[in-house]
Design a binder for these strands. Structure first.
Length: 295
DNA sequence: AGCCAGGCTTGGT
DNA sequence: ACCAAGCATGGC
């Protein structure tokens, strides 16, 4: 058992873990339970910062600081946002919302599975995938009450790592379809195989510039522009990546072009030019704002 | 170009 | 209680 207080100001843990970036976090009595790499961890927001607790001893907590991005200077990022009414409203509505830094493979796999799914369903698919193909983690088995487990569609209270590309590549399409991912199964399998056999290099993406990295990711089956942008933003933190889904399209239309109907092409161009060097960060604020405030 | 691919949620009856 | 529509993206 190990604990730490990560002293951080202006960090909205709930908004961050519940804004569609990640799919494996569950809240129970103000405590967020989740898995980062091979660590099961519980997080709680306090006035002093974020209290983290693991069941295994920790030599250092950099894996958690890196995931939560607690060292990021949020003020400096917010300063780069355009100074307009919609942006001010979005920032005011979810102060302290952060972008996480996820493992690229977990992020890629999760967003391949996200296509034409709603967040609740993505959570269910990812939970099943981890349960059936991930490694069991040492962790308290009493974190989820039976009723929570039932509600979340998780039958056991054991926690699991996200399965590696090797583990997925060794599975059959039928195994994966059993996790309710439907037609996304061949895409996930193909990605896992290409990474395992070395024909696709997730690390090489880091060294590319944004347009090249995007093009590269889109060579994978099941990865179009939107999913590539999610992976680039949430996994690699290319902050210029600006995923455009229907929610964001709606947000841009309502907030920035309320009088006339803007074409999809115009909205894309606007998204790519209006929001500055941390456009993806701005996108996350707009996304969360439109999903919680407007409708 | 237009249809199709899970399964869960929502809305109408 | 039940059934249809909506979701939202990429591939063919």
């Amino acid at each position: 058992m190990a604990n730490i207080l990560l002293r951080v100001r202006d960090y909205n843990l709930a908004a961050t873990l519940d804004s569609g970036q990640v799919f494996r976090w569950h809240v129970q009595n103000d405590t967020w339970n989740g898995v980062v790499g091979k660590h099961f961890v519980r997080l709680k927001q306090t006035p002093e910062g974020i209290v983290a607790e693991t069941v295994t001893p920790q030599n250092d907590w950099n894996w958690l600081r890196d995931f939560l991005q607690t060292e990021t200077d949020l003020e400096n990022i917010l300063k780069t946002f355009p100074d307009d009414e919609p942006m001010r409203a979005a920032v005011a509505a979810c102060r302290g919302l952060r972008l996480l830094r996820q493992d690229p493979w977990e992020c890629l796999a999760s967003f391949i599975l996200s296509s034409t799914k709603q967040i609740v369903q993505i959570r269910q698919i990812v939970a099943l995938l981890c349960e059936k193909h991930g490694d069991p983690l040492t962790g308290p088995s009493d974190i989820l009450s039976p009723s929570d487990a039932e509600r979340d569609g998780v039958m056991s209270t054991q926690h699991f790592s996200f399965p590696s590309p090797q583990r997925i590549a060794a599975a059959s399409e039928a195994d994966l379809r059993a996790c309710k991912m439907g037609f996304r199964a061949p895409s996930l399998l193909a990605a896992a195989r290409r990474i395992t056999d070395g024909s696709f290099d997730l690390e090489a993406i880091r060294k590319m510039d944004y347009p090249e990295a995007r093009e590269e990711l889109m060579k994978l089956r099941g990865v179009g522009g939107k999913i590539a942008d999610c992976v680039l933003l949430f996994g690699y933190r290319f902050d210029s990546a600006f995923p455009v889904d229907v929610w964001i399209e709606r947000a841009l239309q309502q907030l920035y072009f309320p009088r006339r109907r803007a074409s999809e092409k115009l909205l894309r161009h606007f998204a790519a030019t209006h929001f500055g060097p941390h456009a993806g960060y701005a996108q996350q604020y707009l996304f969360h704002y439109i999903r919680t405030k407007l409708e």
